[in-house]
Each structure stands twice: as structure tokens, then as C-alpha cells.
Design a protein around this nucleic acid. Structure first.
Length: 937
RNA sequence: GGGCGAAUAGCUCAGUUGGUUAGAGCACCUGCCUUACACGCAGGGUGUCGGGGGUUCGAGUCCCUCUUCGCCCA
């Protein structure tokens, strides 16, 4: 005989601290999160694969709220599909994060007064590796605390030997396909990180600065001059020309002549180039080819010198081609100091016409916020246009969808205007560019018979032309070069592995819009490139859906950030209220693509919805254990249909509805036709907040507020319906737990394991996702609804007239729907208990003593309130209702009388309006009669 | 400067091809310690759907325009 606990043995609050960690360990030991490669139908197994690859956090990172919401979304999806019977793989891992990690270690070194140069390249890399080994991967442990059900056995790392091989493989393929080239051009340079950056890594920020108007006098006639506007006068040392528009009449006479650069006295030509915007500023531009990307293009067109006047660190220097251009007193001066000094000297010399406040934008390093400097250098580039074309087509034809959909337009716009990608970084931590130079070719004494450079899959290759020794390029690759391979490198590519066959392409990519270009677009391009075949000439897209979620913000809508100190540590929330509270709050509070607002100054209030709901669930479970006991219940399908009451049918119908609702909100899991999203299914699914809300309403407002209350009577010992009520209640709660498990895995698993009849060693995490049974009798359910509506009406009247909670009122049911009245009366025990009333015949209530409501279903509920009914108030209330209804009915009749409407509107709409007309007129009659029967005041 | 989008209840947002009396959560107000839960229960919504114009039998939804705001890229 199972032991039925008493109330003292089960606390009234769920205590995540004592259960969650052990539960997570139990899941792991049971192998619940492990994906089974052989089970994938792509290699002959029985299950559809469902794969999510984690956006790899920086290996030295720690969990913040952004990770919290990103990974919760992924875990909800993966748990949902795992329960739905898919071969679900959530593949975790970390990114070596080149610049970011190098910066962290350099800061460590700085504490002991050392720099990376002091150590040298090899020792520094060892230092970083040691640091990563000791301090890295913390975030993966933290993800376990929020319940992430990733397959940890497959944890990947972008800098592992396996993934490094993938990096080298694609580099060599691209190089050999002519998609990677060495370019001599102006790129963004971070003078703090001492490396070039891609366009994406140099973020634009609005800035207020000074626009200096500087006079360049004509060399041969100093009475004439051209005024040039610039925000960076310190770059004037690198000026090689002044450019004007060829069709600008103001300057035609100057073209071909020379002006004197007032900063250094060097004479430079005035050139004509259509790039100049006549309308902007003075219509004349100084041309500094080595320190401005546009000027560089102008310089190339006009074969101008390209003097470099800034050191890598951002100080003024007389660099390549700059001999004689930089006054000695400026050498070594920082660029921003130089800016002020140049401006001052120009002013002194009378060359500064004016300086005015100017709104513009500056680009800053995305890793250290230093203002980047455009700087001429040799870098490695990927030619993007050929890669972008198929990736663009894939989104346009629906093989990849991006949600929310408006981001597709942004993606298309970027792809259509794509620029080549600078992939070389002058740092040490990362994959070294696998390009090699023949040592002999570099030797000027040797005849130049060997190619200048080549890419190699192997270390230390010999020169393919002369067999001589080679030297590897010093640069490393952009971190994003390796992370773009993530959906396939983590599965074993370039090897033709079972995992790759089983799990590529993946399904949903969950990330933030900020890295749409950094990462998502590049994964599409590289993923398609490496999967090209005779069967798939354009390759296979790496995922069919991109889910872009919003940003965690504080109550003032500011992005949560370390520097603002307005962040919330997800682990604090876990410790205070549990992972389920965190997860629920995140999922329920975050519409697709919308930001999540949380108040860092009131963590309790921010997460109370999640905490409260977990407690509610817990208490339903507590009630169940106390009232239902632990004796196994009959499976629902062995309960005789005749034994089911209207309440049973009602909750079973609601159970079906919530399952259908959740499925609609979440799915389809993949394109319906298996190939591409169509107009019909493009925007469907992934509405996690709607799924959460429908499940919450079911549990709280249907199951707890109504069915469970109704069941209290039937569960009494010896009640003839006790077994039926137990079976239905346990069934409905079981379905609720299954539905909620993806969002609140801990409390649902804990409760599920204590349900009557639970089989030891089975896990909710692996239990089957519910399907709608569709066996409920909807007519019987409507009978229960009649009782519910009557209860609600009595409660409303009680509140209206401030009837004391303990007072029992007399209630009569009547009206135009005798069937429903009878149905409500059959639930008299329930009605009287819930509404604190006794049911009496209508004749038992003396006319003129009752408050009455006319329900939408035709039932009239009269509450005897002799002496306290305010008939003026009743009349007013009913009249307002009637008035509104009459107005709407008139409009409705007008519509139905309009031939254009009946002729043009769809038949179904017209029919619905006709039905409505019947209902409304009946109700108008009821209301009119009731008002007429009210005693005159 | 180029591109995309938003404006609906105090706040955050739903509202699918135009077709119920425009909804939800939170917040707020009133009354309740009704023995699963006060982290709870019951009751409470008169919104010029940003302004103006248009198309239509019918507009929160489509078109034009103005205003304000946001995002992406220069």
C-alpha cells in the first residue's frame, strides 16, 4: 500500500536549491541529453534529426543575461523536439575569440609589467593556452545551472586540432579557387589591438566633433586658395592632392595647378575626380590615400603617392613614402594630440578659416572601443560576391528563413552590396594564415622562378616550385573565419563523418541580430560552398530557420552592460528563485524578436512571474499528492466513457485545445514540404511566448481554478466518482507537465517523478510530447461551461453589492436556454460551493428583490438580495448594455440589408452575421423584458 | 546619405490573406488568511488603434501624406 503523505511532509513552496543540481546530474548520468547518431533517418535510423548548434560563447566568457535568453530559447526548442521523438542534438562549444582572448591575457601580463612582445610569439601563445585551460570553459558549467540539455560529449572548440583542420581546409580551397587574395588597401586599424579589422568589426558610433576648414593657397599665386573641410587635420601630412568635382565651375581654373599644404609646406596638385560631392562642405577634398578608404581609390585612379604618416600605435611618423612630409616636432606625437596641435598651428599661420561643431560618425574597435584608423596595409581578403550569390538566393527562395521576417530585407541588402572580407589579423592568438612563402624566392640573389606564395594544408611545406624551404605568413585569421564553419566543422567536416551525414544541415540557428553579418550570413555562404555537389550545385544551407531574439534591457530600455552596471547575473536568479523561474520569465516575457525588459534594481519583481508559476505548479502537485494519493490511477483510455462527467469532458477538451495551441505556436519544426519555406508556412511557429502563455492559462485558469476545484468534492474518500476524478486529474496534470517541461524542466520533472504510477528510471525529459486525443464530448463540455458562467455571474453580483464572503445568497437560474439551465443545475453542488449560494426555484425569489444578469448563452442568473439591490443601478447597467447592443444590432441589420454586402462578402461571413443577428435579437428581447420588469424607483 | 521597420490600455506587446462587441501579461483598484498555493483567491478595461486624406459594402489591417521613434548599412 502506497504511503499517502500528509500536508506537513510536503512544503508549500518548491525549493529548487535542494533538487535542481542533483536532478541535472541524474539526467546527465542517464544520458538523456545524448543524441544518437545512428538514430537519424538520414543514415537509415528511425528518427528525424533535429540539430541546433550553440552560438559558441567566448571561451573565457562568463554567463550574462544575453546568454541566458539565447540558450534558454535553444533549450526549449531542443527539449520540445526531443520529446516529440526527434533525434535531437544540441551541440555545445566555445570560440577561441582571437582578439578578445588575447586582450584578456595581455591585461594579465600587464599586471606584472610584461607585454606580449617580452614573451615572444610562441611563449605568448603558450601563455594563452594555459590561461584557457585553467580559466576557460566556465560558461559551459554555468549553462548546466540553467538547465541546458546540450550533448556535452560533443563539446567543440574553434581552436581544437579538429576544427583547426577545417579552417585550413576551407582556406586552401578558397585560395585555390581564387577566392582568397592578398590586397594592398586601406583597412580599419585598431591602434590598441594592433591589428587590422573587418568592416563589420569597426562599428560606427555617432560623434560630435570639429570640422576644420583649412585654406590651401595656390603655389603660384598665394592670393588665391581652395578651402578644404576635414575632421582629421593631423592626416594632412599625408595629403597628396586636393580634389574637386570636374564639373564644379568654382574650381575649374585650379585643376592641374598646385596648392601648398599648410601643414607641411609641400606642394600638391589639384585634381578633378567625380567622387567629390559638390554639395558637401566646400566642394573640395584633401586626398590622403593611405589613411582614408575613399581617398585610396582616388589615389589609385590618379597614380598618386600614398605616404603613411601614422605608426601602428597611432602616433605621427614619417612612414613609407612619407619622406619630407612630416615636420620633425610631430614625430611620435599621438594622433589626437597632433590633431589639436595642427589645428592650432594652422590657426596661427592664418590657414584655419574656421572650425565648427559637426555631427558625424566614428568607427570604433568592437573589442576595445578604440577609435580605429583607416590605414594602408597588405591584408588577406575573401572575394565575397561569388559566395554571396547562392546565399542570397537561399533566403529569397525560402530555403533559409529569418525571423522576424524584417531581418530578411536587411540580409538581402547586405548581400547585394557585399564587400570583400578582410580576414587577416596582426595578432598572435588564432589560426595562423596557412600561406607560405618560398625562402629562395625572397632571396634577391636567386632567380625568381618560384611563385610568390601558396596555401598549404600541411605545416612546413616545401616550395612546390623549387622544393626549397618556406616561411609561413605571420598573420592569424579573423575569429569569425573559424566560427563561420561551426555548423559543419563541429560535426567532423572535412571528414565525411556519420555525424555530418546524420545532423547536417542543422535546423534552427538561435542568435541575436547583431551578428547576422559577422556570423549567420557567413555560415550560410561557407556552408553552401562546402556542400556543393552534382546533386546540389549551390550546396546545402546550414539551417532552415534563423531565430533572431532581442536584447536584455533594463527598465529604462538601456542595453544591459558591464560598464553601465545594470546587468543581472542569471546565476543570481538561479540561486534566488531557481532556473525554472529564470527560464519562464525569459520565454514568457519575450515575443519573437522583441527585447526583454528586466529591472536590475528589482530582481524579485522581474522574475516573480516565473517564480510564482513554478510555485503554482508545485502546489497543484502538492494537492494531487495529498488528495489523489500515490496509488496508480486508471489510464484514461480504460475509463468508461459513461463515467465521464461534463467537468471531465470539459477539462479533456481544454487539454486537447492547449496541446493544439502549443503545437501551432511552436511548429512546424521544419519546412512543411521538406525543401523550402513557402508563403504559407514562412512565418509559422517559434512563437515561444504564445506557447508559454497558452500552457500557463491552461494550468492556472482551467486546471487549477476550475477542474481541480470541481474535483475536490469527487475526490472525497468513498465518493463514487473518486476513481474517475483521480484518473482524469492525473491525466490532465501529466499533460500539463509534459507541455511545460521544455520551459520549466526542473519542477516539472520533479513533480512528474512523483505522479501516481510513475515508473522508476523514466524521465519526463524523454517522455512523449502530448497529442490531442479529440475524444472529449464538446456538448458535455458546454454543459460545464454553463455552470461556470453561472458561478461567474453570481460572483460578479456578490462583488457588485459587496456581499460578505461568508454570506450564502439565494440564486435562481432561468432564461431562454432550458438545456443549459438544467446543465448548470445538475452541477448544483459545485455552483453552490464556488459561488457561496443555494439554488432555489425562480418562484422562490420574490419579484423586486433580485439582481439579475442575462448571460450571453441565454441563461438568466437571479440573486436574491432583498433590501440591498439598487434598482436604479441595475436599470442603468442593463440599459447601457442594451443600448450598445441595439446600436450594434442596427449596424448589423444595415449590413445585412445592404445588397452590396450580401452580394460581395464571402458567404461564410454573411452566414455568420445572420446567426449573430438571431442571437443578438434574442438577447435584446431578454434585456428589454428584464428592464421592464424592474420595479420603478 | 542609402535601406528596413514601428506608432494599439499606465507599461510591454498580440491582433495571420480587410469581416465577432479590438485582446493578453504586468501594473493598478476593491474585497477576501474559502484547510494545494497570500509567490494565493474573487471581482474590476469609455483605448480619438499617432494626425490627416483615400480605396472599399466594410479599414487597427490596404494606399498616399505628415509627425515622432527605432534598427541596419554608409
Amino acid at each position: 500500500m502506497a504511503h499517502t503523505p500528509n500536508a506537513d511532509e510536503i512544503p508549500s513552496r518548491y525549493d529548487p536549491a535542494t533538487t535542481d543540481a542533483a536532478l541535472y546530474e541524474a539526467w546527465e548520468q542517464a544520458g538523456v541529453f545524448r543524441a544518437d547518431t545512428g538514430a537519424s533517418e538520414r543514415i537509415g535510423g528511425p528518427k528525424a534529426p533535429y540539430t541546433i548548434v550553440i552560438p559558441p560563447p567566448n571561451v573565457t566568457g562568463v554567463l550574462h543575461m544575453g546568454h541566458g535568453l539565447n540558450n534558454t530559447v535553444q533549450d526549449v526548442l531542443i527539449r520540445w523536439r526531443r520529446m516529440s521523438g526527434d533525434d535531437a542534438l544540441w551541440l555545445p562549444g566555445t570560440d577561441h575569440a582571437g582578439i578578445a582572448t588575447q586582450n584578456v591575457v595581455e591585461k594579465q601580463l600587464a599586471k606584472s609589467g610584461r607585454t606580449r612582445a617580452d614573451l615572444g610569439r610562441d611563449a605568448f601563445i603558450e601563455e594563452v593556452k594555459t590561461f584557457v585551460a585553467e580559466k576557460g570553459g566556465v560558461i559551459l558549467k554555468q549553462l548546466r545551472a540553467i538547465g541546458a540539455s546540450a550533448d556535452w560529449d560533443r563539446t567543440a572548440y574553434t581552436f581544437s586540432p579538429e576544427l583547426s583542420r577545417a579552417v585550413r581546409e576551407i582556406f586552401v580551397r578558397w585560395y585555390e579557387d581564387g577566392l582568397i587574395y592578398r590586397g594592398h588597401r586601406v583597412t580599419h586599424w585598431c591602434s590598441r589591438c594592433l591589428t587590422a579589422l573587418s568592416d563589420e568589426e569597426a562599428e560606427s558610433h555617432p560623434a560630435q566633433g570639429l570640422m576644420y576648414h583649412v585654406r590651401y593657397a595656390l603655389k603660384d599665386d598665394s592670393s588665391q586658395s581652395i578651402v578644404v573641410a576635414t575632421t582629421r587635420p593631423e592626416t594632412m601630412f599625408g595629403d597628396v592632392a586636393v580634389a574637386v568635382h570636374p564639373e564644379d565651375p568654382r574650381y575649374t581654373a585650379f585643376v592641374g595647378q598646385h596648392v601648398v599644404n599648410p601643414a607641411n609646406g609641400v606642394a600638391i596638385p589639384v585634381i578633378a575626380d567625380a567622387y567629390v560631392d559638390k554639395e558637401f562642405g566646400t566642394g573640395a577634398l584633401k586626398i590622403t590615400p593611405a589613411h582614408d578608404a575613399n581617398d585610396f581609390e582616388v589615389g589609385k585612379r590618379h597614380a598618386l603617392a600614398m605616404p603613411i604618416i601614422l605608426t601602428p600605435e597611432g602616433a605621427i611618423t614619417e612612414g613609407t613614402d612619407a619622406a619630407g612630409r612630416v615636420p620633425a616636432q610631430y614625430l611620435g606625437v599621438d594622433r589626437f594630440d597632433a590633431r589639436k596641435r595642427v589645428a592650432k598651428e594652422l590657426e596661427t599661420a592664418g590657414a584655419l578659416v574656421k572650425s565648427e561643431q559637426h555631427q558625424h560618425s566614428v568607427r570604433k574597435c568592437y573589442r576595445c572601443d578604440t577609435v580605429v584608423e583607416p590605414r594602408l596595409s597588405d591584408q588577406w581578403f575573401v572575394k565575397m560576391a561569388p559566395l554571396a550569390a547562392p546565399a542570397l538566393a537561399a533566403v529569397k527562395d525560402g530555403r533559409v528563413r529569418i525571423l522576424p521576417e524584417r531581418w530578411e530585407a536587411v540580409y538581402v541588402n547586405w548581400m547585394e552590396n557585399i564587400r570583400d572580407w578582410n580576414i587577416s589579423r596582426q595578432i598572435w592568438w588564432g589560426h595562423r594564415v596557412p600561406v607560405f612563402y618560398c625562402q629562395r624566392a625572397a632571396d634577391s640573389r636567386q632567380p625568381k622562378a618560384c611563385r610568390e606564395h601558396f596555401a598549404s594544408r600541411d605545416d612546413n611545406p616545401v616550395c612546390p616550385d623549387c622544393g626549397g624551404p618556406t616561411r609561413q605568413d605571420d598573420d592569424v585569421l579573423d575569429t569569425w573565419f573559424s566560427s563561420q564553419l561551426w555548423p559543419f566543422s563541429t560535426l567532423g567536416w572535412p571528414n565525411d563523418t556519420k555525424d555530418l551525414k546524420a545532423f547536417y544541415p542543422t535546423d534552427v540557428l538561435v542568435t541575436a541580430p547583431e551578428i547576422l553579418f559577422f556570423w549567420v550570413a557567413r555560415m550560410v555562404m561557407s556552408g553552401m560552398y562546402v556542400t556543393r555537389s552534382a546533386e546540389h550545385p549551390d550546396g546545402i544551407v546550414p539551417f532552415h530557420s534563423v531565430y533572431l531574439h532581442g536584447t536584455a534591457r533594463d527598465a529604462q530600455h538601456r542595453r544591459m552592460s558591464k560598464s553601465l552596471g545594470n546587468g543581472i547575473d542569471p546565476l543570481d536568479v538561479v540561486n534566488l528563485y531557481g532556473a525554472d523561474a529564470l527560464r519562464w520569465t525569459v520565454i514568457a516575457g519575450m515575443g519573437l524578436g522583441n527585447d526583454l525588459l528586466l529591472d536590475h534594481e528589482n530582481i524579485e519583481q522581474s522574475f516573480s512571474t516565473g517564480r510564482n508559476f513554478a510555485t503554482k505548479l508545485w502546489n497543484i502537485g502538492r494537492f494531487l499528492l495529498l488528495q489523489v494519493g500515490e496509488e496508480p490511477v486508471k489510464p484514461l483510455d480504460s475509463v468508461a466513457a459513461a463515467d465521464l462527467s461534463p467537468a471531465d469532458h470539459w477539462i479533456l477538451a481544454r487539454t486537447d485545445d492547449v496541446i493544439t495551441g502549443a503545437d501551432t505556436a511552436l511548429g512546424p519544426a521544419r519546412p512543411t514540404n521538406g525543401r523550402a519555406w513557402t508563403n504559407a508556412d514562412h512565418r509559422l511557429g517559434l512563437r515561444l511566448d504564445e506557447y508559454a502563455e497558452s500552457a500557463r492559462t491552461f494550468v492556472w485558469n482551467d486546471l487549477a481554478d476550475w477542474y481541480l476545484e470541481h474535483a475536490k468534492t469527487r475526490l472525497a474518500a468513498g465518493h463514487p466518482e473518486r476513481e474517475t476524478a483521480r484518473a482524469v486529474l492525473v491525466h490532465a496534470f501529466d499533460r500539463a507537465l509534459r507541455l511545460l517541461h521544455p520551459i520549466m524542466p526542473f519542477v516539472t520533472e520533479t513533480l512528474w517523478n512523483r505522479l501516481p504510477g510513475h515508473v522508476d528510471g523514466t524521465w519526463l525529459a524523454l517522455a512523449q510530447w502530448p497529442t490531442a486525443a479529440r475524444s472529449a464530448n464538446r456538448a458535455a463540455a458546454a454543459d460545464f461551461d454553463a455552470a461556470r458562467a453561472s458561478i461567474a455571474a453570481v460572483r460578479e453580483i456578490r462583488n457588485e453589492y459587496v456581499v460578505q464572503a461568508a454570506d450564502v445568497v439565494q440564486v435562481a437560474l432561468g432564461g431562454t436556454a432550458p438545456g443549459l439551465v438544467a446543465a448548470a443545475q445538475r452541477e448544483s453542488a459545485f455552483v453552490t460551493r464556488m459561488a457561496k449560494c443555494e439554488l432555489v426555484p425562480e418562484s422562490a425569489i420574490a419579484p423586486g428583490t433580485e439582481a439579475r444578469r442575462v448571460l450571453a448563452n441565454g441563461v438568466e442568473v437571479s440573486v436574491s438580495l432583498a433590501g440591498i439591490v439598487d434598482f436604479a443601478r441595475e436599470r442603468g447597467k442593463l440599459s447601457t448594455e442594451l443600448e450598445q447592443l441595439v446600436k450594434q444590432l442596427a449596424a448589423l441589420r444595415g449590413r445585412l440589408g445592404n445588397e452590396k454586402f450580401t452580394a460581395k462578402a464571402p458567404a461564410a461571413v454573411v452566414e455568420a452575421e445572420r446567426v449573430k443577428e438571431g442571437e443578438w435579437s434574442a438577447r435584446v428581447e431578454q434585456l428589454t423584458a428584464r428592464i421592464a420588469s424592474l420595479p420603478k424607483a
